[in-house]
């Protein structure tokens, strides 16, 4: 067996499991995140809450800014490109990013096609609302999946909805008889072999994280109990009153997500959580981008 980039890239996601990936916009924030126990950082110019507030077209970050963050920390550094913008992805690969997030948080560059991620050596993580989206992204070469949730809101409701949807569809596929899988593949608009994998293994073929709206240790524990293998926290940390303390508490909550007594201690005195926006107040549904 020679070097199989897809396997190696899936393997890196396996190493991130049980961890928290944090959005950072400066080398200083990246250092705070690393010191608080982040297993990776997502380098971006504006966190989702600010992207919402500012509006306009949101693009890949300045490579110089990303390199500054790569130099500041020793943990993996991820960065976002627009859905379908393979040139941005090529640029991120050229600066040796550890993971590319083809993300609905940025303005989509293509309203029909996602990036052919099999053409790249660096790994991709993609968002999904349900099993069909997740398997379509994996078929395109994504080696890690996260729920879309609703970024920049501090409202966990949609991450919960997407995780529950994925898990319930996985349970449904797992319990099917084998002759029903062909039709399930048609219905989900995905290749049969991916459906067969889910049927046999009762899980996605790649690691699955929660993202989009996680703001507290309790939110993180909720997502882990619902079946997430780790958590992305975007605006939730650096839009809160005490980022260091909140970040460290969320890290510990992910490790001990079933210990309510410890979670109670971790939830104490964290200062103000990000204010957040309720689902009904959102004008822009990022989760509807890229299906």
């Amino acid at each position: 067996m020679e070097n199989n980039r897809f396997e190696l890239n899936k393997n890196l996601a396996q190493m991130l499991k049980g961890g928290v990936i944090m959005d950072v916009t400066t080398p200083e924030q990246a250092k705070i995140a690393e010191a608080a126990g982040a297993c990776a950082v997502m380098a971006l110019e504006r966190i989702p809450a600010d992207i919402r507030a500012v509006g306009g077209v949101s693009r890949m970050s300045d490579p110089k800014m990303i390199k500054g963050i790569q130099n500041a920390v020793s943990i993996p550094v991820m960065a976002k490109c627009r859905i379908g913008h393979f040139a941005e992805a090529q640029i991120l690969q050229a600066i040796e990013i550890d993971y590319i997030d083809e993300s609905e948080v940025l303005s989509p560059a293509d309203d029909k096609y996602h990036i052919d991620k099999t053409a790249f050596d660096v790994p991709f993580v993609c968002g999904a609302k349900d099993l069909g989206e997740a398997l379509r992204r994996i078929n395109e070469g994504a080696s890690m999946i996260r729920t879309k949730g609703e970024p920049g809101t501090g409202d966990v409701v949609q991450a919960v909805r997407h995780m529950r949807m994925m898990q319930s569809e996985i349970r449904r596929i797992s319990s099917m008889s084998e002759d029903e899988l062909f039709d399930a593949a048609k219905e989900l608009q995905v290749p049969y072999d991916l459906v067969l994998y889910v049927h046999e293994n009762k899980k996605l073929p790649v690691v699955n994280f929660a993202a989009g709206g996680v703001a507290t240790p309790a939110d993180a524990a909720l997502m882990m109990q619902l079946g997430a293998e780790g958590v992305f926290v975007g605006s939730g940390i650096f839009k809160s009153g005490n980022p260091e303390k909140r970040a460290a508490a969320i890290v510990k909550a992910v490790t001990n997500f079933t210990d309510a007594k410890l979670l109670a201690e971790l939830s104490e005195d964290l200062g103000e959580a990000m204010v957040g926006i309720n689902e009904q107040e959102i004008e822009l549904l990022m989760a509807e981008r890229g299906k």
């Binding site: 991130l16 499991k17 961890g19 126990g37 982040a38 943990i75 993996p76 490790t255």
Partner: peptide
């Protein structure tokens, strides 16, 4: 995993 995370925890 990440040694920084495991070491801290």
């Amino acid at each position: 995993g990440e040694s920084t995370v495991q070491g801290k925890l």
